[in-house]
Design a protein around this nucleic acid. Structure first.
Length: 570
RNA sequence: GGGCCUGUAGCUCAGCUGGUUAGAGCAGUCCGCUCAUAACGGAUUGGUCGCAGGUUCAAGUCCUGCCGGGCCUACCA
């Protein structure tokens, strides 16, 4: 039995995520987790909300709530939606947890002890009206290069020129519009990543099996220009993990917090502690400390490409730099973006389909299947309503759903709602099992390699084998002259339905459960021995007919939804 | 500007270290079946593999240039 630690990039607390976010991290992570659980492996699947930072503070202010309350509320909302998509986290934590505060402060202390923290005095823009320091991109003004009047302090969106906030003409706060800004001195902590460059570089160089997307981004940051730069890990904010050097105060850093990107990945570890503290597990160090049982753990991370630098460099720098035996990631699966009808999904612009909306119009399996079978693995992929309707109707309703329907209904009308007895396998049945075996092995290979689309294609092919078999065997014709032969065909077909329930569970857990229950199967063990697995629905066992496993998406629905989601949310 | 990714049948995509007539699913067409969610099965029509050069006995696969799409470029997360 293998032990697999799985984390999904933790979604930011600010608002509900869209389907592009879902397919880039949580959903494939869930697929992988469900698959490995089904194979009998020991899995710990962790996620959380990323709650610190300026956007959370501003969103809370906009909502008229204290930031703690806002985050608690939004965490509950995201947890409910995650449940709606059947994301099977062992724990869905919060980066604002006490556990994460303690761990974050611990890591900072360790890094300081190793000489990897530098204290840097620098200048930041302070807004009197807002009562806060402003991140570069929260400062707006006129671009000195092109004259665009909504240029941000980090870059002008119009001419794409890189800017410093002090470059802007007539700078103002993007929060309040106030021009009462002041450049102030402030002291910050920097993680001296540059001194870990060689170590990180050597580590990345070993990862020859990682997606190119992952390693190329890491190498770019390691080698570009002067190489890996030190990174500020603190901010002048109220909301965040207070700066402490381990358990001790950090003189000069009072009133400041750690930068969200420092504490967010540490939440992966903290989430395991939360999992134990919530009474759901017994030993979190067994997953995270190689000196305490985690040496045999395989750790796989899932994320969108925008998250790669933090997971390949910053977080490993934190882990390595601590000089403590924390578990480093073994495999990073990164995804490109999903586009929506010719443009990007956009949270800030409210464009596309958001997770809550998706669940309002269709059950989770529809989305899970389509999104996973079109996961943007090699390049950005695109959602269109036409494709979504055509693919879902064909794959789920016609290939799988209709197979279940034709088998169970034929049996009900000819033999009743019990598995028919009599007959024995012939060459056709042997060939079917051999074909299934080949497909199953390919499915497993792709799943092990975290090849999401190929896994989906293989699963679909496994479903299609059922229809091919039925067509060749023709139980409806055979029944007229030889009911016993029809019985064995149907018995095997009913077993196929049960098998499909098991094999499909990582992709479409709800439908899989319905299939298992309809066939009277409670055993969820993986069919290691296929021939034997196909005898589990035994003669005279009762079954039920699942009605319309997947209803088709009508043209009216498609047009209605395309219309409804064509604009901008709120 | 720099770096990386990407461009293969109408659509969505496979094509590993270069090697026989470039593949799959969907859509289209034809045939079959009638148990089933007008579903299923079989066959089949579609491609000068973005463009132009080059290396090679041989290139979708390697090299160069160009064109198109995307991402990143370190204070949004």
């Amino acid at each position: 039995m293998k032990r697999i630690l799985i984390t999904s990039a933790i979604p930011y607390i600010n608002g509900i995520k869209h389907l592009g976010n879902l397919v880039g991290s949580q959903l494939p992570a869930d697929l992988f987790a469900r698959y490995h659980r089904a194979r009998g492996n020991e899995v710990l699947f962790l996620c959380a909300t990323d709650e610190h930072g300026t956007p959370a503070e501003l969103a809370a202010a906009k909502a008229g709530k204290p930031v703690e309350e806002y985050c608690a509320d939004m965490h509950a909302v995201q947890a409910k939606i995650a449940d709606g998509f059947r994301l099977s986290f062992d724990h869905f934590g919060r980066s604002s947890s006490a556990q994460n505060k303690e761990l974050t402060q611990h890591f900072a202390g360790r890094l300081a002890d190793q000489g990897l923290i530098a204290e840097v005095d620098e200048q930041q823009v302070y807004s009197h009206a807002d009562g806060r320091f402003l991140p570069d991109r929260y400062i707006e003004g006129t671009c000195p290069n092109c004259g665009y009047d909504k240029a941000r302090g980090d870059q002008c969106e119009n001419c794409t020129k890189q800017l410093e906030p002090t470059d802007l003409i007539e700078p103002r706060s993007a929060v309040s519009g106030s021009t009462d800004l002041e450049v102030r001195n402030t002291r910050h902590l920097y993680l001296r990543q540059s001194s870990l460059r060689q170590e990180l570089s050597d580590w990345i160089a070993q990862k020859t099996d990682w997606p190119v997307l992952t390693t190329s981004i890491a190498k770019k940051w390691l080698n570009d220009g002067d190489g890996l730069q030190d990174r500020g890990i603190t901010r002048d904010l109220d909301w965040g993990v207070p700066i402490r050097r381990g358990e001790a105060p950090w003189p000069g850093m009072e009133g400041k917090v750690f930068y969200v990107w420092f504490d967010a990945p540490i939440e992966y570890i903290a989430s395991a502690r939360e999992w134990v503290d919530a009474g759901k597990g017994a030993d979190w160090e067994r997953w995270w400390r190689t000196d305490k049982g985690a040496a045999d753990v395989r750790y796989v991370q899932f994320m969108g490409k925008d998250n790669v630098p933090f997971h390949t460099l910053s977080f490993p720098a934190t882990i390595l730099g601590s000089r403590e035996p924390w578990k480093l990631v073994d495999y990073i699966k990164s995804f490109n973006y999903l586009n929506y009808d010719g443009g990007q999904f956009s949270t800030s612009q409210g464009r596309g389909i958001f997770m809550d909306q998706a669940l309002e119009i269709l059950p989770p399996d529809y989305w899970r299947w389509w999104l996973l079978s079109h996961a943007p693995e090699t390049s950005d992929s695109e959602f269109t309503w036409d494709n979504f309707q055509a693919d879902v109707n064909k794959d789920l309703a016609d290939v799988l759903g209709n197979f279940v329907s034709r088998v169970t209904k034929f049996c009900r009308s000819k033999f009743g709602e019990t598995v028919p007895e009599g007959g024995s396998y012939g060459p056709r049945e042997t060939a079917l099992i051999a074909g299934l075996q080949t497909r199953l092995e390919a499915y497993q290979t792709h799943m092990e390699a975290v090849e999401v689309r190929k896994s989906a294609a293989e699963l679909r092919a496994i479903w299609a084998l059922g229809n091919e078999y039925l067509q060749a065997a023709e139980p409806w014709a055979v029944y007229k002259t030889n009911p016993g032969e029809a019985a064995v065909i149907i018995r095997l077909s009913l077993n196929l339905i049960a098998l499909y329930g098991q094999l499909s569970a990582p992709f479409i857990p709800d439908a899989a459960q319905i299939l298992g229950q309809a066939m009277g199967q409670t055993d969820t063990l993986w069919p290691e021995d296929l021939a034997q697995a196909l005898t589990r629905c035994a003669a005279r066992d009762a079954f039920t007919v699942p009605e319309n496993l997947f209803a088709k998406i009508t043209d009216e629905q498609r047009d209605d939804w395309a219309q409804r989601f064509s604009g901008i949310r709120q």
